Simulated scan of single mutants.
Amino acid sequence: MAGKAASVPSTYSPSPTQKKKPTIFKDVDWVRPDGRGFHQCRPAFLRTSAVNAASGSAYVEFGNTKVIVSVFGPRESKKAMLYSDVGRLNCNVSYTTFATPIRGQGSDHKEFSSMLHKALEGAIILETFPKTTVDVFALVLECGGSDLPVVISCASLALADAGIMMYDLVTAVSVSCLGKNLVIDPISEEESFQDGSLMITCLPSRNEVTQLTLTGEWSTPKIHEAMELCLDACSKLGEIMRSCLKEAVSISKE
């Protein structure tokens, strides 16, 4: 009697970690997934005083990217801290567990927290609250692309809502390089296949850049073009943010 053939264990190979750029981004006349023009930002919704318990807060939606920021303070700095004639700024950026398609991935984002601090620190008049600390807590509710620029702009709006003295509002916009094209305010899908990215954080009324972040390989003309796109968008975003604050004040007076 013939014995049963030994079963051969199945084998598998992991998928390549490096994503290949889809054909659509290689075409000259490709269309963005959400139908926008290459130099067109997503529609934005902004609202202040979103958290009653906070000194100031803001909630914003840029397309599918949803962020809420709460500001607490100024509060007295801990005794363990050295005396300072200027105030301190503490920033924290975190993601909810349902912010990304992969559930349960919510966590603090130390890199974003540090970049948020750098973007805001130069705009706040720290001398107006010595020996005290202002806490900024940003929570990404849904990740839809360009998360950090949206967090920075939302945090600036929340600080203004809290009455923190600032030289100007802080706006941030990013551009992705996809093949030969530059696309502003990229969504997650576009960021996944970008050749490089550039983000500018600025004080629009003062025409001052507080932070510039560059990744990937860029030619000098492309950098100049991307910077012009970002600065123009930052200026327009600043106008929208000021209108939001004015509207909030007028409603509170009624």
Rank of each mutant, 00 (worst) to 15 (best):
I251D: 10
G196P: 04
G122H: 09
V31E: 15
R47T: 14
P43V: 01
T97H: 15
V183G: 07
G56W: 06
G37K: 06
I251C: 09
K66M: 02
C41R: 12
A123V: 04
S252Q: 14
R32D: 11
A58R: 05
D232N: 12
T171M: 04
M241Q: 13
G238V: 05
M166H: 06
T100W: 00
E208W: 11
I152T: 07
F98N: 09
Q211N: 14
A99H: 07
G87V: 02
V51A: 08
I24D: 08
L120F: 06
K131P: 00
T171G: 00
T210E: 01
T213E: 07
L212S: 13
A54C: 06
L46M: 15
D147A: 10
K118Q: 13
P101G: 07
A53S: 12
I240H: 09
E121I: 03
P16V: 06
N181I: 05
H224N: 14
T133R: 01
Q211E: 11
D185T: 07
K78P: 02
G104F: 07
M1G: 13
V93S: 07
A50V: 10
M165Q: 15
P130S: 11
F193G: 02
E190V: 03
E127L: 02
C91Y: 02
S70C: 04
T96K: 04
F137N: 10
V31L: 14
S13F: 10
S176Y: 09
G56N: 06
C143K: 05
T215V: 03
M115D: 11
S70K: 05
S153W: 08
